[in-house]
Design a protein around this nucleic acid. Structure first.
Lengths: 64, 64
DNA sequence: AACAAATGCAATGTATATATTGCATAGGAG
DNA sequence: CTCCTATGCAATATATACATTGCATTTGTT
């Protein structure tokens, strides 16, 4: 459940709220996904990936 | 919402039920995902990808 | 055709992703 | 320190992913 959303978002100097607005969820949802405390749906993962200019694999394909 | 699960599963001559058992969901869930009628969670996408020997991008990164 | 295995489909129930609100806390800028 | 912005956190509500059961339909094989 470890992902690279937080790291990538900060790389882009984007705030949780900005990302949330772009992908049309709430700030809280982004926060929980970044902490790995839940398990987003595919559509949301795709939206996040596009908003951050990455692919699914780059953000969510865990190596561990 | 188009994905390559059905195509890839049939390539491997695997049945919906076999795939379902491997990823620990029901056959119906696999069927609906293949039809694009819903929106699986990330964990399930990862499990399916691993069961089919593909990555997230290969199965779920829609081009359209 | 006749049988069996695989898939589709529909109704109802449960678990959980996500929303909403509100407040607390952390961290940077002045 | 003070102010402000970003983030964390917790409670309650709603939407939806997924389970369960049962039956219909397709598809392949003989």
């Amino acid at each position: 459940m470890k992902n690279k959303v937080k790291f990538t978002r900060m790389e882009q100097k984007m705030t949780q709220e900005q990302l949330a607005r772009q992908v049309k969820v709430t700030r809280q949802t982004i926060g929980l996904i970044e902490k790995g405390e839940y398990n987003p749906t595919l559509q949301l993962c795709v939206a996040i990936a596009k908003a951050l200019g990455k692919t699914l694999d780059e953000l969510f394909w865990e190596v561990d």
